[in-house]
Design a protein around this nucleic acid. Structure first.
Lengths: 222, 222
DNA sequence: AAGCTACTCATACAGATGTTTGATAAAGGC
DNA sequence: GCCTTTATCAAACATCTGTATGAGTAGCTT
């Protein structure tokens, strides 16, 4: 068995000449690729089961590498989680190009689950795991990222398109939560809509509805 | 050590006469109370950490009982989880008395986190743990419970207060997700609002904002 | 008082889980 | 071509975790 695995890894039968072709099976050593594979596998596993439910063994298996590499490249489970969180943080920054009108912005947020389901799920898990502002390394980045959206809402309010009684910050939070519902409330969707909340067709429909909601509130561009 | 623990439990020093007063420490046997204590502790623990993160030892410690009782009264961790879910299901049914106008209904949903934080959190965890309609024992009850709300929205739509392009079912889901944001997105609230998302003052403010949102959409009673 | 039953406990146990150790082989410099 | 460094692996390890066992105790019945 052990020799079989090794053979798999080396990508050639033991008796054949070692490392003949330069790229026979993509199985040369490549620490950067291995690292990224572990990160990808971690995203899938953490996204699926959350931090507590994720298993290091499962991550290694998904990545097709030895379990020990998780400790080798990162600093154990916790370190891997943090490294992965950091990587995902960057992707999220690209999500909302400034100046996009609110309805379209919400539509994209809701569609994000199709592009990166694990990322959205991890974001949801992190909300439930959240203990306080102290141990939240992403806080600064998130604050900066969202402040422009709040500013947009405030501008709409100043221009009279939004009643004075509305708290723009709360409104933004509620709208964000609304767009994530296909991820956070799949059981409710299954009950109320009777469809698979993960199917691309429904997600697109739901994203359109998020845009409709935004227009209903009066969040058209000025 | 063991005698010390026993002493703690009995509520009297070993040499003293056994069980003198009828109610010296509230420590008479009371299986029903013990059962309920375990259920309450389970709600706290499962709510705090989710199913995967919850520890049977921690539940027993919280309840102040021996760990084995979890297996004695329920059927292990899984059985306890189901029993507790069932109990919480009933409470949720009392949440929305039919006929309540939408803005008020949403306000109450958002306030529920003050009355029963663990319940709301468990509901959120269950959404992320959700795998499909097959293993969802609550589905029927939830469907029935929410159908009246969807019907209300449909009625509003028929009366022209809601545009035809709105899908009432999706709207309800989005509004539910919005009202749960103090639980599901505390990190975002911390970033955007700069306040403690769990403080009663903020939760009440947020609940008011949920009602404002409902009125903004046009969900006043007909 | 004796005995029965329901209830509670400490302990043991098996399996899972994250981490460490030591070995092996590929890369790369000299 | 040799030697150091780096990348990878299998196996062992310590700990955690859920569950089972068996014994002891309270309260009731007779």
């Amino acid at each position: 068995m052990s020799s079989f695995v090794k053979q798999m890894y080396t990508g050639c039968v033991p008796s054949s000449s070692p490392r003949r072709s330069p790229k026979p099976q993509e199985r040369q050593r490549d620490p950067e690729r291995t690292r990224q594979r572990i990160l990808d596998a971690a995203a899938a596993e953490f996204g699926a089961h959350g931090y507590a439910g994720a298993r290091v063994r499962a991550i290694a298996a998904r990545a097709g590498v030895n379990q020990q590499l998780v400790s080798y490249y990162f600093d154990g489970k916790k370190g891997l989680y943090q490294a992965m969180t950091q990587q995902w943080q960057q992707r999220r920054a690209e999500l909302a190009p400034p100046g996009t009108p609110m309805p379209e912005q919400l539509r994209r947020y809701a569609l994000e689950v199709l592009r990166d389901p694990e990322g959205v799920r991890m974001f949801a898990w992190s909300g439930l795991d959240y203990t306080g502002p102290d141990d939240d390394p992403d806080r600064a980045a998130r604050t900066q990222l969202l402040s422009t959206s709040v500013d947009e809402l405030r501008a709409l309010q100043r221009s009279g398109r939004l009643p004075a009684e509305v708290d723009p910050a709360c409104l933004l939070v509620m709208l964000m939560a609304a767009t994530m519902a296909t991820t956070t409330l799949p059981h409710v969707i299954e009950s109320v809509c009777g469809t698979d909340p993960r199917s691309p067709e429904f997600v697109e429909h739901f994203a359109d509805q998020a845009a409709v909601l935004a227009r209903l509130i009066g969040l058209e561009p000025a």
